[in-house]
């Protein structure tokens, strides 16, 4: 079960009419490093047209540009990072990050790890994991470029994170996923429903492991760049039924999560998730979870 027609038909059943999109390149200011440096003006002086993303504090869309935004001195000095618009959302869903012990369970290449450090103003601790050893070097480069001070990186599978013997107040699960057509022009020819289901199973394992490491009153943010409900709403519906988690209301860009998927009714609270169909951004899904109180 694969191919463009198959997936487009699924999206139609989920209430979205397929159209080709070309998400705009975006950057995120590293506020701690860029403070007082008039960065948007500096970039505009280099010939980079910027447009503020209305739903992000530090995000800008890149318009016409005379230079590559990945090769300016300002980029190399860590004043900003190149980060897709929707991918800037998950880290902002946490409350009160400063001083917390944070797990970034699937961290490479490190865009969100840097964002977390920036939101924490380098106060607290980030433990960043990635199972792919080759991608750890890219993560380390990112951390050095952005002058991150509060992070320790391990080459470790997120499904083994309880082995760290630490409890985390905040856990980011930007889990490995099937991706989406807006981020990959070859997506429809590469992906099958079997891939999606395999990824969804791994994601459930990661979720279950994260719950073991979550401190009392802690928060998990779960995100994917997949449009497939198996990796999104269905996994979250499974998590609230099996892991004693509850979904928190979040105020961010995106539509409500689906509560009916291919004829199957999900828990009504799944609507608190955010589903972003490709348009101004790539496709994305995010939600915030907390453990249920013992009495609930």
């Amino acid at each position: 079960m694969s191919g463009k027609e198959f997936f487009v038909n699924r999206y139609r059943q989920l209430g979205w009419r397929f159209r080709e999109v070309e998400p705009r390149q975006a950057i995120r200011l590293n506020q701690a490093n860029a403070k007082g440096k008039n960065l948007p003006e500096r970039l505009e002086g280099l010939g980079v047209e910027l447009e503020k993303v209305p739903f992000l504090v530090s995000g800008y869309w890149v318009g016409k540009t005379r230079v590559s935004v990945g090769a300016t001195a300002e980029y190399l000095l860590g004043l900003y990072s190149i980060q897709e618009t929707a991918a800037q959302i998950p880290a902002t869903l946490f409350t009160a990050l400063k001083g917390k012990t944070v797990l970034d369970a699937c961290a490479a290449p490190g865009g969100k790890t840097n964002q977390l450090a920036d939101l924490m103003n380098n106060c607290g601790t980030i433990v960043a994991l990635d199972v792919n050893k080759d991608r750890l070097a890219a993560l380390a480069n990112h951390l050095e470029r952005c002058h991150v001070r509060c992070c320790v990186v391990y080459g470790l599978d997120a499904r083994r994170s309880s082995g760290l013997n630490l409890k985390f107040g905040r856990i980011l699960l930007d889990v490995p996923c099937s991706g989406n057509f807006a981020a990959d022009p070859q997506w429809f020819s590469r992906r099958t429903l079997e891939d999606v289901e395999r990824n969804a199973a791994v994601q459930r394992e990661i979720l279950a492991e994260a719950v073991k490491c979550l401190a009392p009153n802690g928060e998990i943010v779960y995100s994917t760049c997949s449009l497939e409900p198996e990796e999104d709403e269905l996994n979250i519906d499974w998590a609230i039924r099996n892991l004693r988690l509850q979904i928190q209301v979040v105020d961010c860009y995106g539509d409500d999560g689906l509560t009916e998927v291919f004829g199957r009714k999900l828990d009504a609270s799944v609507a608190r998730c955010k589903r972003i169909w490709p348009d101004k951004t790539q496709g994305f899904f995010a939600c915030k979870l907390k453990k249920k109180e013992e009495s609930q």
Partner: peptide
């Protein structure tokens, strides 16, 4: 066994 830590 860390890969990277703190301020390199």
């Amino acid at each position: 066994d860390f890969f990277y830590a703190g301020f390199y």
